[in-house]
Nucleic acid binder design. Sequence first.
DNA 1: CACCTATATTTTACGTCGTAAACTTATATC
DNA 2: GATATAAGTTTACGACGTAAAATATAGGTG
Lengths: 199, 199
Amino acid sequence: MPRALSPAQVEDFRERLCAAAEHLFAEHGPEAVTMRQLAAELGVSPMTPYRYFKDKDDILAAVRAAGFGRFAQAMEAAFHGEPDPVKRSEAVGRAYARFALEQPDAYRLMFDLSQPNEADYPELVAASSRARDMLIGQAKGMVDAGQIEGDPVLIAHMLWAALHGGLVLQLAGKLGPSIDPSALRRNTFQAILKGLAKG
Amino acid sequence: MPRALSPAQVEDFRERLCAAAEHLFAEHGPEAVTMRQLAAELGVSPMTPYRYFKDKDDILAAVRAAGFGRFAQAMEAAFHGEPDPVKRSEAVGRAYARFALEQPDAYRLMFDLSQPNEADYPELVAASSRARDMLIGQAKGMVDAGQIEGDPVLIAHMLWAALHGGLVLQLAGKLGPSIDPSALRRNTFQAILKGLAKG
DNA sequence: CACCTATATTTTACGTCGTAAACTTATATC
DNA sequence: GATATAAGTTTACGACGTAAAATATAGGTG
């Protein structure tokens, strides 16, 4: 075939494979999806994906990084769509929860414990940091607006931990039967802000 | 061999296999551990474990249930070791965090998303509920003591979500480099309690 | 004691997996 | 048009989970 593949063609193949992988990973879990299935999905032979990805873990890392990209994007959109710093924090929080609940499998993949060592995939580390920086910037805005006091980085992590914790317990089916997950999130968010209020 | 295996012998084999499985799952992740390895660890042939467990998922469920058992036990010990309701809440919280950090692999296994459907394993559901009820009882104590107000079930879940969220982010390596995980837990806990304080 | 039967355990076997290596195919250059 | 080179396929290997068949061992019975 041609002497070389254009970078655009390479990127195209990678993206098509990631799209297929995301669907299948979501439906059956990454372990249950085989390289042979992924290849068949693109209509190529089982070994062809190995030209574009090192191995299966490499595909998983790419899918996770893409998830973090969309995740950060969703929160950034909420951030820029709301000028008031207080409403803004709620908007970003809602965007966070909406992403986790509308794309639970992506969220699962992104934050699942016991994934292959993510330090081996710089692209994944970068995408993940982008999402975290988004949350920190958001907390900075709240502190600057004078509503609450404290270290914005710490505050961002407090709100993040509370939000994330509620969401993963919900996704793992661990919440008690009488608990309304969205009320849980709202109450926790408000309690923390009240606890951090100035004075 | 004998006409039948005594229940005690069956239980003994199951426990020995779970102990070996817990170690190996912890070190390499459940997917990386093979039935052949587990059998070899007990010095039996690869098919022998199938007499005592339905399949590999059944072993995983048993290991997870055992983890929840020890988890609830650790918190119950902290609870009964401290009569004052306020200090008690901190003691239980510390016991929770200590368990997660000292037995991170057990904790990972217990709360990991994308595990096989846990509803298929009643023993696992029961063990998991026991841990949750422990946390709810603890919150009830705080409300009854008059320090805070609100629905104890909701409050238990708020504190649980915040604690769990901070711990899984820590275990997943997602916390920012400047964050002290234990300070994060303390601050979040206190902010929520302050936010829920009466008046 | 010898023998039979029921069951604990092992052996064998099958289909599937991830992927290494060899092979095939098709152009871009000379 | 021959050739080098890279894209894609085929073949092959060792390991996996586990079903089925084979084996071995302990009673109960004559």
